[in-house]
Design a protein around this nucleic acid. Structure first.
Length: 212
DNA sequence: CACCAGGCAAGTA
DNA sequence: TACTTGCATGGT
């Protein structure tokens, strides 16, 4: 095995098998979910998405033309609903203005350019932008989240004092830039944290990464 | 009851 | 620049 970052991937993949995220039916649903899941459990996000689906408004034009207060009401279960109603519309407005409202055009754009456009949206930070690039646009980008830090700082594989970009660089420097693998890796990290590395469950004698 | 969840931006000094 | 605070629902 070439390095510990690849080794961790193999351990997780052997343990869990393929995940192949994101859990959603359409690209637009992934996009919406990426905003709604900010600091929020996925189960709450699902309820919000179901609300939008059942109302038949899970579409760019529909959401953009909706009052913030109406949108907030649909997405209430995902928490921070007033904040996220604004953030979601900011994102969709950018896609409307810059990409003619077309996710296809967003996907076809050079990903570095798309990343800049995503980060220019108020309410879209590095994790949300990278999640969209990886899971909507299928670009080879490693998504860092608080779980990544929690797991890999325990194994001394990222610095205690660090930032998003440094963690991302560490992984990108040590992994193949392959979309399928990076998709899988992020999904596996989320899964292993849920099972073995919750804050309330500090140590992990049965964790698949115990010998890493 | 307290704590946590697949962040981000604004405010403070 | 470095640290703190607000945003909020639903599950454990």
């Amino acid at each position: 095995m070439a390095n510990r970052y690849q080794e961790a991937f193999e351990l997780l993949h052997s343990y869990y098998g393929d995940q192949q995220w994101w859990p959603a039916d359409t690209a637009f649903e992934i996009l919406v979910g990426a905003v709604l899941t900010q600091n929020t459990s996925w189960s709450n996000v699902e309820k919000a998405i179901v609300n939008l689906k059942e109302a038949g408004v899970l579409e760019l034009e529909q959401i953009l033309s909706m009052d913030d207060s109406v949108l907030a009401d649909y997405i209430r279960p995902s928490g921070y609903y007033n904040l996220k109603a604004g953030r979601l519309k900011n994102l969709l407005r950018m896609i409307s203005d810059v990409y003619e409202g077309s996710l296809e055009l967003l996907m076809e754009d050079d990903w570095r350019n798309a990343r800049e456009n995503l980060l220019s949206v108020r309410g879209v930070g590095p994790e949300t932008a990278d999640a969209i690039l990886l899971y909507v646009c299928e670009k080879p980008v490693f998504v860092v989240d608080s779980y990544t830090y929690r797991v890999f700082s325990r194994h001394n594989m990222v610095e205690e004092e660090t930032d998003y970009h440094s963690i991302q660089e560490t992984f990108m420097d040590n992994l193949e830039h392959d979309t399928r693998t990076l998709n899988e890796y992020h999904a596996l990290i989320v899964q292993v944290v849920k099972d073995f590395c919750r804050k309330s469950k500090p140590l992990c004698s049965t964790c698949p990464l115990k010998d890493l």
